[in-house]
Design a protein around this nucleic acid. Sequence first.
DNA 1: CATCGTTCGCGAACAGTGTTCCCAAAGGTG
DNA 2: CACCTTTGGGAACACTGTTCGCGAACGATG
Lengths: 227, 227
Amino acid sequence: MEAGEQAIPVWLRERRTGVGRPAERSRAEVTAAAIALADREGLAAVSMRRVAAQLGTGAASLYRYVAARDDLLDLMADEVAAGYDLPAPGGPWLTGLLEVGRQGRVLMLRHRWLPELVLTRPALGPHGVDLLEHVLAVLAEHPADTTRKMEAFAVMNTLTAALALNELSITSGTRHRQGAYLAHAVAAGRHSHLAAALTGASLMPATPAERFEDTLARILTGLLGAA
Amino acid sequence: MEAGEQAIPVWLRERRTGVGRPAERSRAEVTAAAIALADREGLAAVSMRRVAAQLGTGAASLYRYVAARDDLLDLMADEVAAGYDLPAPGGPWLTGLLEVGRQGRVLMLRHRWLPELVLTRPALGPHGVDLLEHVLAVLAEHPADTTRKMEAFAVMNTLTAALALNELSITSGTRHRQGAYLAHAVAAGRHSHLAAALTGASLMPATPAERFEDTLARILTGLLGAA
DNA sequence: CATCGTTCGCGAACAGTGTTCCCAAAGGTG
DNA sequence: CACCTTTGGGAACACTGTTCGCGAACGATG
């Protein structure tokens, strides 16, 4: 409708060359400042004014590097995806995919704002495309059709983000807010299975990393077939 | 830290009885207005002022029913979860879970703002707890331990939301924004598997509903074991 | 070296946002 | 009829994303 040229993603909107006053900063610099701010104070703190302040400039200047705040968020997510350090494809596809998941989890725990971004705005930038290419390479010998492989990629990203978000909600106090009502509901009776489940031995034997890997492995084999 | 009593979720914060001037509206009424607004204009349109306007009151009045906007969002999500109409547990657990997934998908397609809420703020209200109880009942005979059953519930919710979000992004034009850069990356060479995947016959034989069900079935059997 | 075309930096302003304060009004209860 | 508690909500505060328009800075051109 009203989005004429704006349908073009950030990464394709390159700045013109040579002519005119040269920019004092780069898109990468702005992105880095935003990431640093988000790491320190969370996604909500990433406002145009605060990012600009972090760079020592005015808020309006950022619009020379980015068309809107959402573009900045896309840039942040894709920039973190540059942190994957993936081995050359080869060996069983499941181990290859698990390695991707493992690293994704670490990146998301390191940047606590990433899961929310991955879940709500799954945009593919240059590094995201590289990651997809890697996954497809790992699955090159796999007999599944293209659609299913793409689906596996999406499911892996989504699930990694969701599980990471869950882990993070345990660390920060966010988790107790949910348990509060749950406990109340159980105490009120009328939820027999739930009550039984919560009173049952809630043993957590494995480390979070192990649990994550186990879950991801089960789901990927379910989606793509056994080893 | 600074959240003393505010750690209590909305559903436990009931209003006092009898004494004082009676409220002109109910929490359910406010929630319904917010849902109607979101259905019509999206989640971003759900501001305190606009919800209040929809009810013909002032914005500040809403804080008599809700402690913050986030509470309102939680109420909206849980209210929609009242829309599940689930058969009594019985029969194979997989068919029971698939029915839950099917209905969840329909609810999310009907309320296009729900997936985002489910993904980023997975809070359990009364109806959410009822749903969890139902899932545990369906899985009552299943040998898996409690933690895994809870995990299956979470994975089901997350995945349903993510897949619904994906479906919705195809309907609205949002999808092309992603494909734009993907096409560019492929055209630039250097992504052989991706290029092969995209040029391959992209046949979409099944309906979205069928694809959704197939994916969910595969993942649930992967997580919980074969039928 | 001056001019020109273009781009950059960014203060100011606009239209919103969530939330808090405070006070007037309303209603049951004693 | 007071009293006490609670509701309704205008006004204000501290922000937000974004646009406008200007002056200044630069590379290329004459």
